[in-house]
Protein backbone atom coordinates (compact mmCIF):
# COMPACT_ATOMS: atom_id res chain seq x y z
CA UNK A 1 0.00 0.00 0.00
CA UNK A 2 1.13 3.43 -0.87
CA UNK A 3 0.70 5.89 1.80
CA UNK A 4 0.61 9.35 0.48
CA UNK A 5 2.26 11.57 2.91
CA UNK A 6 1.12 15.01 2.17
CA UNK A 7 0.83 17.88 4.48
CA UNK A 8 -2.66 19.11 4.86
CA UNK A 9 -3.09 22.74 3.95
CA UNK A 10 -5.02 24.63 6.50
CA UNK A 11 -8.48 25.60 5.36
CA UNK A 12 -8.55 28.90 7.18
CA UNK A 13 -8.02 32.25 5.63
CA UNK A 14 -5.21 34.08 7.21
CA UNK A 15 -6.91 36.84 9.12
CA UNK A 16 -3.92 38.57 10.56
CA UNK A 17 -3.75 41.20 7.85
CA UNK A 18 -7.36 42.12 8.39
CA UNK A 19 -6.31 44.43 11.21
CA UNK A 20 -3.90 46.20 8.89
CA UNK A 21 -6.60 46.84 6.33
CA UNK A 22 -8.94 48.11 8.99
CA UNK A 23 -6.25 50.36 10.42
CA UNK A 24 -5.55 51.81 7.02
CA UNK A 25 -9.20 52.69 6.52
CA UNK A 26 -9.41 53.98 10.04
CA UNK A 27 -6.50 56.32 9.53
CA UNK A 28 -8.01 57.56 6.28
CA UNK A 29 -11.25 58.49 7.99
CA UNK A 30 -9.43 59.94 10.97
CA UNK A 31 -7.57 62.27 8.68
CA UNK A 32 -10.53 63.29 6.54
CA UNK A 33 -12.93 63.82 9.42
CA UNK A 34 -13.42 67.39 10.43
CA UNK A 35 -15.38 67.67 13.61
CA UNK A 36 -15.80 71.38 13.24
CA UNK A 37 -18.39 73.01 15.36
CA UNK A 38 -20.04 76.04 13.94
CA UNK A 39 -19.72 79.00 16.22
CA UNK A 40 -21.40 82.33 15.95
CA UNK A 41 -23.79 84.86 17.33
CA UNK A 42 -27.29 83.46 17.59
CA UNK A 43 -30.26 85.66 16.89
CA UNK A 44 -33.97 85.28 16.47
CA UNK A 45 -35.51 87.45 13.80
CA UNK A 46 -38.86 89.10 14.44
CA UNK A 47 -41.79 88.04 12.28
CA UNK A 48 -42.43 90.29 9.28
CA UNK A 49 -44.41 93.43 9.94
CA UNK A 50 -48.01 93.50 8.94
CA UNK A 51 -48.53 96.79 7.07
CA UNK A 52 -52.11 97.08 8.30
CA UNK A 53 -51.30 96.69 11.96
CA UNK A 54 -49.68 99.63 13.67
CA UNK A 55 -46.57 98.70 15.64
CA UNK A 56 -47.11 99.01 19.37
CA UNK A 57 -45.95 102.30 20.85
CA UNK A 58 -42.59 102.24 22.57
CA UNK A 59 -41.67 104.69 25.26
CA UNK A 60 -38.70 106.71 24.23
CA UNK A 61 -36.77 106.05 27.42
CA UNK A 62 -36.99 102.29 26.98
CA UNK A 63 -35.25 102.33 23.66
CA UNK A 64 -31.53 102.71 23.17
CA UNK A 65 -30.81 103.89 19.66
CA UNK A 66 -27.43 102.87 18.41
CA UNK A 67 -26.42 104.23 15.05
CA UNK A 68 -23.33 102.98 13.28
CA UNK A 69 -22.04 104.45 10.06
CA UNK A 70 -19.83 102.90 7.43
CA UNK A 71 -16.70 104.29 9.06
CA UNK A 72 -17.50 102.53 12.33
CA UNK A 73 -18.46 105.68 14.21
CA UNK A 74 -21.12 105.12 16.84
CA UNK A 75 -23.93 107.26 18.16
CA UNK A 76 -25.77 106.09 21.25
CA UNK A 77 -28.87 108.17 21.86
CA UNK A 78 -27.36 111.04 19.90
CA UNK A 79 -24.06 110.93 21.74
CA UNK A 80 -20.88 109.86 20.00
CA UNK A 81 -19.13 107.05 21.85
CA UNK A 82 -16.21 104.76 21.17
CA UNK A 83 -16.74 101.02 20.83
CA UNK A 84 -15.09 100.31 24.18
CA UNK A 85 -17.68 102.34 26.03
CA UNK A 86 -20.68 100.69 24.41
CA UNK A 87 -20.86 97.74 26.78
CA UNK A 88 -20.73 99.72 30.02
CA UNK A 89 -23.21 102.23 28.69
CA UNK A 90 -25.60 99.48 27.65
CA UNK A 91 -25.40 97.76 31.01
CA UNK A 92 -26.16 101.06 32.68
CA UNK A 93 -29.07 101.63 30.33
CA UNK A 94 -30.60 98.19 30.86
CA UNK A 95 -30.09 97.97 34.60
CA UNK A 96 -30.70 101.63 35.41
CA UNK A 97 -29.39 101.36 38.97
CA UNK A 98 -30.11 104.98 39.88
CA UNK A 99 -33.59 105.07 38.37
CA UNK A 100 -32.55 107.65 35.85
CA UNK A 101 -35.48 109.22 34.01
CA UNK A 102 -33.83 108.82 30.62
CA UNK A 103 -32.85 105.16 30.94
CA UNK A 104 -34.95 102.00 30.70
CA UNK A 105 -37.82 101.52 33.17
CA UNK A 106 -36.83 97.92 33.79
CA UNK A 107 -34.53 95.37 32.14
CA UNK A 108 -37.56 93.59 30.66
CA UNK A 109 -38.70 96.74 28.92
CA UNK A 110 -35.31 97.71 27.51
CA UNK A 111 -34.98 97.58 23.75
CA UNK A 112 -31.72 97.95 21.92
CA UNK A 113 -32.17 99.27 18.43
CA UNK A 114 -29.18 98.86 16.17
CA UNK A 115 -29.22 100.86 12.98
CA UNK A 116 -26.49 100.83 10.43
CA UNK A 117 -25.89 102.36 7.06
CA UNK A 118 -26.25 100.08 4.08
CA UNK A 119 -22.59 100.50 3.17
CA UNK A 120 -21.33 99.38 6.56
CA UNK A 121 -18.94 96.46 6.31
CA UNK A 122 -20.18 93.31 7.98
CA UNK A 123 -17.18 93.31 10.32
CA UNK A 124 -18.19 96.58 11.95
CA UNK A 125 -21.76 95.42 12.32
CA UNK A 126 -20.68 92.20 14.01
CA UNK A 127 -18.30 94.07 16.33
CA UNK A 128 -21.21 96.20 17.38
CA UNK A 129 -23.56 93.25 17.84
CA UNK A 130 -20.83 91.50 19.78
CA UNK A 131 -20.75 94.36 22.28
CA UNK A 132 -24.52 94.23 22.71
CA UNK A 133 -24.37 90.46 23.24
CA UNK A 134 -21.50 90.97 25.66
CA UNK A 135 -23.56 93.41 27.70
CA UNK A 136 -26.42 90.93 27.93
CA UNK A 137 -24.06 88.11 28.77
CA UNK A 138 -22.55 90.07 31.65
CA UNK A 139 -25.98 90.97 32.99
CA UNK A 140 -27.25 87.42 32.75
CA UNK A 141 -24.11 86.03 34.33
CA UNK A 142 -24.39 88.46 37.22
CA UNK A 143 -28.05 87.65 37.79
CA UNK A 144 -27.40 83.94 37.52
CA UNK A 145 -24.50 84.09 39.95
CA UNK A 146 -26.53 86.10 42.44
CA UNK A 147 -29.50 83.75 42.31
CA UNK A 148 -28.04 80.33 41.63
CA UNK A 149 -24.34 80.66 42.24
CA UNK A 150 -23.28 79.58 38.77
CA UNK A 151 -22.76 81.33 35.48
CA UNK A 152 -25.59 81.52 33.00
CA UNK A 153 -23.91 79.19 30.52
CA UNK A 154 -23.76 76.46 33.10
CA UNK A 155 -27.47 76.40 33.75
CA UNK A 156 -29.08 73.45 32.02
CA UNK A 157 -30.92 74.19 28.78
CA UNK A 158 -34.66 74.53 29.25
CA UNK A 159 -34.34 74.46 33.02
CA UNK A 160 -36.65 76.80 34.96
CA UNK A 161 -33.63 78.64 36.33
CA UNK A 162 -32.38 79.42 32.86
CA UNK A 163 -35.75 80.60 31.71
CA UNK A 164 -36.01 82.78 34.78
CA UNK A 165 -32.83 84.60 33.92
CA UNK A 166 -33.88 84.87 30.30
CA UNK A 167 -37.12 86.48 31.38
CA UNK A 168 -35.24 88.89 33.62
CA UNK A 169 -33.02 90.01 30.78
CA UNK A 170 -34.75 89.30 27.50
CA UNK A 171 -32.64 90.12 24.51
CA UNK A 172 -34.74 92.64 22.70
CA UNK A 173 -32.58 93.71 19.84
CA UNK A 174 -33.93 95.37 16.77
CA UNK A 175 -31.82 95.47 13.67
CA UNK A 176 -32.47 97.75 10.77
CA UNK A 177 -30.76 99.39 7.88
CA UNK A 178 -30.86 103.14 7.78
CA UNK A 179 -33.31 104.34 5.19
CA UNK A 180 -31.83 106.98 2.98
Amino acid sequence: MLLKKRERESAEINGSSMADIAFLLLIFFLVTTTINVDTGIGMVLPPPLDPEVEPPPIRERNQMNILVNAQGLILMDEQPVSINEVKTKLIEFINNPNNDETLAVSPEAAIVSLKTQKETPYRIYIDMLDEVMGAYKDLRDAASRANYGVEFDRLKPESPQRENIQDMYPKKISIAAEED
Binding site: D38, T39, G40, I41, G42, M43, V44, L45, P46, P47, P48, I126, L129, D130
Partner: peptide, 15 residues
Protein backbone atom coordinates in the same frame (compact mmCIF):
# COMPACT_ATOMS: atom_id res chain seq x y z
CA UNK B 1 -35.79 85.03 5.80
CA UNK B 2 -38.48 86.82 7.76
CA UNK B 3 -40.89 86.25 4.91
CA UNK B 4 -39.93 82.59 4.72
CA UNK B 5 -40.50 82.18 8.44
CA UNK B 6 -36.98 81.03 9.27
CA UNK B 7 -36.44 83.18 12.31
CA UNK B 8 -33.59 81.39 14.02
CA UNK B 9 -30.39 82.66 12.53
CA UNK B 10 -26.77 82.57 13.43
CA UNK B 11 -24.03 84.95 12.36
CA UNK B 12 -21.13 82.65 11.83
CA UNK B 13 -17.94 84.04 13.33
CA UNK B 14 -14.64 82.79 14.58
CA UNK B 15 -13.51 83.13 18.16
Amino acid sequence: LQQAGTFRINYSTKR
